[in-house]
Simulated assay, not measured.
Amino acid sequence: MGARIAGPVVRFQGGRLSGERADAARNRLAVLRATEELLAQSGPELFSLDQVAARAGVGKGTVFRRFGNRSGLFQALLAERAARLAEAVASPGTELGPGAPPRRRLLGFLDELSDLAGRNVALFTAHERVCAQDRYADPTYVRWHRHLTGLLIELLPPGTDPEFAAHALLALFDGDLVRHVVEAGGVDRLRRSVRGYAETLLRA
């Protein structure tokens, strides 16, 4: 995986966000790791910021100031997980980057997103349940949707709705659906199924 979606991108320098102090970077990474571990153990239903702070070894106020609430925390973790994909999409000279054929870029992006979702099922599920009201405004979702819409404008015939088609493709990464598919056939099945659906859409 490599990555960068068109649009604003999270920049990392030695594990830090651009302009971030070293101690703040350590705390941020500790909180995100703790979030990931707790999600894997108990899911979003039993998840609390108190638990995150305790496991990360930081004060609860640190978590609130940096992330605000559970929605902000899950959005930040998704953005971090998607940063490499975002970089590849914006990097010329890669199969996903500007200059590559739009069909290859679209199918390659969906392949990479399938891998990302399959490896982060608990996060995708938690993000959807806790951030449901703001799902379509989430910065990572907005970048993914904008990227797919731009490619579909080039690939779909006149009279179709590329924005709706982009939403439909992203709906394939519903957390509960991803979990069901991966449990029944692994990430390979998810990747094949998503690609097959996209190819059918393009043929139609």
Rank of each mutant, 00 (worst) to 15 (best):
A56W: 14
A90P: 09
V121Y: 14
R70Y: 05
P102G: 08
P98H: 09
R143A: 06
G2L: 09
L107Q: 04
G108W: 08
D50A: 12
P102S: 15
D134E: 08
E199Y: 08
A117D: 03
S193N: 07
P92I: 10
E112N: 01
A83C: 14
A82I: 14
R143I: 00
A22Y: 10
P102T: 11
R81H: 15
M1S: 03
G7S: 08
A30G: 13
G185Q: 03
V63W: 10
R192E: 07
P44R: 05
D176Q: 10
R192D: 02
S91C: 12
L106M: 07
R84N: 10
L17V: 03
A82F: 14
A126H: 04
V63K: 01
R105V: 08
C131T: 06
H180D: 11
G93C: 10
G97S: 10
A82W: 10
Q13P: 07
A25S: 12
R191I: 05
G14S: 13
D111N: 01
T140A: 12
A171D: 08
S18T: 06
L106F: 03
D50R: 08
Q51G: 10
G185F: 07
W144R: 00
R26E: 14
V178A: 12
L151D: 01
L32D: 03
G175F: 04
E128I: 03
S48T: 15
L152P: 13
D134P: 02
L49M: 02
R26W: 15
G7P: 08
R66A: 10
R191F: 03
E45D: 11
G186V: 07
A171I: 01
N69K: 12
L156Q: 12
G159M: 11
L151S: 09
